[in-house]
Amino acid sequence: MRITLLALILIPLSAAFPARADLHITRDHGGYVEEYKAKYARIRDNRERVIIDGICNSACTLVFGIVPMNKICVTPRASVGFHQAYYDKAFTFGIKVTSSEGTSDLMSYYPDTVKDWIRRNGGLTTEMKKIKNGTELWKIVDPCPEEW
Rank of each mutant, 00 (worst) to 15 (best):
F64R: 01
K37I: 11
G31A: 07
T26F: 01
I131F: 05
E34L: 06
I131A: 06
A7T: 15
Y86S: 06
I95P: 07
C73N: 03
G94M: 04
G81S: 10
I51G: 05
V67M: 04
E147H: 05
K132I: 09
S79H: 15
R119W: 12
G30C: 03
I66F: 01
P76M: 02
Y109F: 08
R49Y: 11
N121M: 13
A15Y: 09
I131C: 12
L8T: 15
M128N: 11
I52D: 00
H24C: 10
T61I: 01
A78G: 12
R27E: 12
D45V: 12
I66A: 01
E147P: 05
S100N: 13
A19H: 10
L8D: 10
T135G: 11
L106P: 01
A41S: 07
A78W: 04
G81E: 07
T61N: 04
A21D: 08
K37D: 09
G30I: 00
K130E: 14
A41P: 01
L13P: 09
F82K: 02
H24A: 08
W148G: 15
I131S: 08
P68K: 03
E35Q: 11
D45K: 05
D116C: 06
T135F: 10
K115I: 01
V74H: 05
D88F: 14
A59W: 00
K89L: 05
K39C: 02
R2P: 08
R20G: 12
L106Y: 12
W138F: 15
S99K: 02
E48C: 03
A21G: 04
W148T: 15
Y86H: 12
R27M: 12
E136M: 14
I25A: 01
A59Y: 00
Y36N: 00
R42Q: 14
F17N: 09
R120N: 07
F93C: 13
I72S: 01
A21E: 13
K129F: 04
T26E: 05
P145E: 09
V67G: 06
F91R: 08
D45Q: 09
V80I: 15
G122P: 05
F82D: 00
W117G: 15
S14C: 14
G54E: 00
G134V: 08
R77A: 12
H24S: 07
G31L: 07
L62P: 10
N133C: 08
T135C: 07
G65Y: 01
D22F: 07
K132S: 12
T26V: 09
T125E: 11
D53V: 04
I43M: 13
L6W: 14
G81N: 12
L13W: 08
S100D: 15
D116H: 06
D28S: 05
K132M: 07
P12E: 11
